[in-house]
């Protein structure tokens, strides 16, 4: 710094200080983000367990995606496990996503509709956002208490007392009951968040358009599909893509929602698979890293697809501007 001050030039360039300012971020970012990212790719070409140090080329990808000959070969075993997890991820994501989006869209439209005039929207917004603030661990614990497998679960004990069922229904152990439970929990936790995003989008729409539509005698449904949705599209796509990314990385609730000590196989998501293989004393780094890369590619591809698919129709509009 002293050097620059001594220079005879009258113009002192401050531009380089900008780099000093952003340096800390890039240091932290490259150390905590770029390096792990690259390392994940590197690890995906390495072995598992005791062979974690050896390069195995594309073997992990081959095993996870295409399996291997023989019922009890490493490739076949890990493929079955991985495909099961990937399947669960999609089931849970789609289920959670559909409920969540429909609910939040409906509520967002109602809350922002000038004609409906719901009182205390601020209160509702807060209340509906609240589940998102509770940590996943607590949510899982609450739902485990309510839907416990045995007669000690709240719902089971109620149903048993009413005499509606003879034996306790295993809500947590049953494949579909537990999946639906996860979908409901995830939707319940996130619909408030999605609703706020959509509402802010809807509030951005010029009120005069709605006025004009109502003068022209447009019905509520018509207004929604012809005015709200098209203008809301960019926000909507954003919501879909972020939900996609979040949904495919779903981890906490499926990981926590089990009784006893092991995670339910019907709830194991891809993220749980990654964690499971990574987080043992003799880790299968290769499988974990490969699954991460595959998940990354799937997420990226779906994201691009949704973006392309939805932005084409709006392209001419942009051209007009």
């Amino acid at each position: 710094m002293q050097n620059t001050a001594r220079k005879p030039h009258k113009m002192v360039s401050y531009s380089k200080y900008g780099y000093f300012f952003i340096l800390p971020f890039f240091l932290v970012y490259s150390f905590f983000m770029i390096y792990p990212l690259i390392n994940t790719f590197v690890l995906s070409f390495k072995g598992n367990g005791i062979t974690s140090d050896q390069f195995v080329g594309l073997q992990n990808y081959q095993f996870l995606l295409f399996g291997e000959e023989g019922q009890f070969s490493a490739g076949a075993a890990i493929q079955k496990e991985f495909l099961n997890c990937l399947g669960n991820t999609f089931i849970l994501w789609v289920g959670n996503f559909v409920i969540q989006l429909l609910l939040s869209l409906l509520l967002a439209v109602w809350f922002s509709d000038v004609r409906v005039k719901i009182k205390g929207t601020g209160f509702f917004k807060v209340v509906m956002y609240l589940p998102n603030i509770i940590t996943a661990a607590s949510v899982a614990a609450i739902f485990l208490m309510i839907f416990g497998n045995t007669k000690y679960g709240a719902v089971n004990s109620m149903l048993l007392n009413f005499g509606w069922i003879k034996d306790a229904f295993p809500f947590i152990n049953d494949a579909w009951a537990s999946r639906i439970l996860v979908m409901i929990i995830q939707s319940w936790m996130w619909f408030g968040n999605t609703m706020l995003l959509l509402m802010s989008g809807i509030f951005g729409i010029d009120n005069s358009i709605y006025e004009a539509a109502s003068i022209d005698g447009s019905s509520g449904l018509h207004t929604f599909f012809r005015i709200t949705m098209p203008i809301l599209k960019p926000i909507f796509i954003y919501v879909v893509i972020t939900s996609l990314i979040g949904g495919l990385q779903m981890f906490d609730i499926p990981y926590l929602l089990h009784e006893g000590r092991t995670i339910r196989p019907t709830l194991k998501t891809a993220a749980v698979f990654i964690y499971d293989n990574f987080h043992t004393a003799q880790p299968n780094y290769g499988y974990s890293a490969t699954a991460s890369v595959i998940l990354f590619i799937i997420t990226a591809a779906l994201g691009v697809f949704i973006y392309k698919f939805n932005t084409d129709s709006t392209a001419p509009k942009k051209a007009k501007k």
Binding site: G47, N48, G49, I50, T51, Q71, F72, S73, A74, A76, A77, I78, K80, E81, N277, T280, Q282, N284, Y287
Partner: peptide
């Protein structure tokens, strides 16, 4: 069960 073992420990022979 056997597949789970094999998936977690690739080095174990499972038949």
């Amino acid at each position: 069960f056997k597949q789970k073992v094999k998936a977690a420990f690739p080095e174990i022979t499972v038949e």
